[in-house]
Design a binder for these strands. Sequence first.
DNA 1: CGACCATTTGACTTTAATCAAAGATTGTGG
DNA 2: CCACAATCTTTGATTAAAGTCAAATGGTCG
Lengths: 241, 241
Amino acid sequence: MQTTLSPSPSFTRAAWREARLARSSRPAAEPAVATFERTGQIANYPRGKTVIEEGKPALKVFRVVGGALRSVRVLADGRRHITQFLLPGDFFGFTHESEYPYTVEAAADTIIVHYSRRAFESLLEENPKAGRSFLNVLSKELAAAQNHLVLLGRKSAEERLANFLLTLADTMARDAKRQPTSTELPMNRSDIADYLGLTIETVSRLLTRLRQRNIIDLPSNHAVVFRDRQALEVLSQAGAE
Amino acid sequence: MQTTLSPSPSFTRAAWREARLARSSRPAAEPAVATFERTGQIANYPRGKTVIEEGKPALKVFRVVGGALRSVRVLADGRRHITQFLLPGDFFGFTHESEYPYTVEAAADTIIVHYSRRAFESLLEENPKAGRSFLNVLSKELAAAQNHLVLLGRKSAEERLANFLLTLADTMARDAKRQPTSTELPMNRSDIADYLGLTIETVSRLLTRLRQRNIIDLPSNHAVVFRDRQALEVLSQAGAE
DNA sequence: CGACCATTTGACTTTAATCAAAGATTGTGG
DNA sequence: CCACAATCTTTGATTAAAGTCAAATGGTCG
């Protein structure tokens, strides 16, 4: 099950696949999309601000430059679920519908670039390469969503949290060569809970427990240090097959 | 919250959106894709047969003609999750990777059309309309996956099952004008459980309970009749917002 | 400083899982 | 076509994991 290519000996092949997917799921730049990049307009959103709202006309597409956002769905009785966190490099706002199918809010102070949907659509028509690039972006998003389906459907609370911490760290350090040994947590406990299908109390208890076991350190509410990454990888049950 | 356009008075706007999404998420035919359709080769797969396998080279793309398949991911310790059921009209096997990221098995006896990946790729390059069509297909798949994330993350066992029965019925009767009053269940209890993040026992108990409350009827293990669709809609908590 | 908000911790409850066993259905070979 | 094996489904008793309710602690920002 092990491979000499793996820097972390306990990593199975499947775990590797998952880690790779997670990291590559938010590409720094698909080539043709990069061209487009220059025409966008930049904007700042403070923590808590709504960027797009479910049901409103989908007139713009966005790309995250800095900070973090949450894509939110709320049930009639108030239960909330976060379908994804949007981090630097991620696109959002693209849909086949005329209205946005979800709400996006700034989970921390955030910088975003936005483009008109019309400009985006005509780019797709004129430049098949761009269309193909974007197909890849969506295909990667879909793969990430499917990983998350498995996490929500079949993993324990502890596995979910361990998985989340590792994936977040890898994503935040997308461009880095070395595996990160710590990560910022731009979102609060409540956001993490709603992303992992847990309650805030469970998230808090699990973090405390990981700290007590010397697997992580919590220097502040918005940072995690990996003291034993390998233990975390084992707990995360990353593997398939 | 109600609208006169809704045939079912208890349906909220959000519930409608969800139902519409679910139904449209597997389009009968995106125009440019239909052209492509003719070049494919047809094949039969008996129940249980594996069509594609996680990790194997992704050389073909597929479209379901008849029957039902399951897209499966298995954790190291044997826990299984079904990320989606593939029903007539659905595509599968498309990925940006060189290998398939999931396994697909026939959940019932199935008919499939398959195309070479190369032919498919060159179609995308030559025909921007086809690319755009396929972007829509992926975008709809993504929307469906996000609905399912909310279901797994925040809905109770009963809500999940009610939701599943309604969505399945609507999808199976994609082309019908009237809302279906019954549906075939091409997959077994175990597949349903692994799709909804539950156990087979819980699925069975819930079905029995719905029958005892006269909300559904179970004329056979592979069929459901809706005796009180509205009650089922209420239980499914379809709504957002 | 003090109010407000986020986080942690504790006691208890609930939901769905697990373990176990009894029916029911399906498929197969004689 | 029947009989029996194998598989699938249902039902019951018990357990475990995570949720709920409640309160204390800690941090941040006017």
